[in-house]
Design a protein around this nucleic acid. Structure first.
Length: 260
DNA sequence: AGCCATGCACCG
DNA sequence: CGGTGCATGGCT
């Protein structure tokens, strides 16, 4: 099976899972009064505009978007049924559409939560794959759709929790940023731990380089090293779910092919 | 032509 | 001396 891993080597990032999952569409950036936060984050006292968006304000059509990219993105957030359908279509998860997927406790498959501190799995390709599948399934169980995954690079790990996020992914699934300073976003993992990240960007040439800061804690919790994978998902309510799983380190540490 | 990983200067 | 922001270079 092909993994959804977004890697630098990929050059052009393939969309995570082909899911038409769209984050909250951004508000019209006509006014700079309200900074941002298209991504609805649960738990953190953030910009009120987020609450507004969640209140059922239909996302206004981004008429004159400065970003030249056109984005025919269906807003699944306002279409829970579609999201559920997508999830089911993807991995046959028995996720009952229901009136409100995010209401109350979801029928989470009772499974021993993996002690975050112990990723255990050495460097077994097979176990890596099964780990990915298991994680994917658990994400689906809580109604979270995987946005994308990133194999951590050396600088991602050693950079004090600064994780570079591919531009295409950034602009499609993460909150739009007006200024380099970015915004603070919150997330949680599957064990209920909460995280706070700084979502920001650097100006690089005439483009942007997107970056998620503060992932150090997550890395520590999951024991993520270079080559391991950081997973980003989103619940129907828009909340961000993060996780980590071991990648195929053996490939990185031990060359599979003999050097010439 | 971009994009992204990383080096590095600068600032606290 | 650690962290942040920037610029460069390697690679698609």
């Amino acid at each position: 099976m092909e993994s959804l891993t977004a890697d630098a080597a990929d050059g052009q990032q393939g969309l995570a899972s082909g899911l038409p999952l769209g984050l909250l569409s951004l508000p019209p950036e006509a006014n700079a009064a309200a900074p941002f936060s298209p991504l609805s984050l649960s738990g953190l006292p953030m910009d009120p505009s987020a609450a507004l968006l969640l209140s059922g304000v239909t996302a206004p059509r981004p008429a004159g978007q400065p970003h030249s990219q056109s984005q025919p993105q269906p807003n699944l957030l306002s279409n829970p049924a579609a999201l559920a359908a997508a999830l089911v279509a993807r991995q046959g998860a028995p996720q009952p559409p229901g009136p409100g997927p995010g209401s109350g406790s979801v029928g989470v498959k009772a499974e021993p939560a993996p002690a975050a501190a112990a990723p255990a799995s050495p460097a077994d390709p097979a176990s890596s794959e099964s780990a990915a599948a298991a994680l994917s399934a658990r994400m689906a169980a809580v109604g979270a759709a995987i946005i994308f995954e990133k194999a951590l690079t050396a600088s991602d790990v050693s950079g004090g929790g600064r994780v570079v996020v591919p531009k295409s992914i950034a602009e499609q699934y993460f909150p739009r940023l007006e200024q380099p300073s970015g915004v603070t976003i919150s997330a949680s993992d599957l064990d209920g731990r909460g995280y706070t990240f700084k979502w920001r960007f650097w100006v690089n040439n005439s483009s942007r380089m997107y970056l998620l800061e503060g992932a150090g804690e997550l890395h520590r919790n999951y024991g993520l090293e270079v080559g391991d994978v950081m997973v980003f998902a989103q619940k129907p309510d828009g909340s961000l779910v993060v996780a980590g799983r071991s990648g195929n380190k053996s490939c990185l540490l031990t060359p599979a092919l003999p050097l010439p």
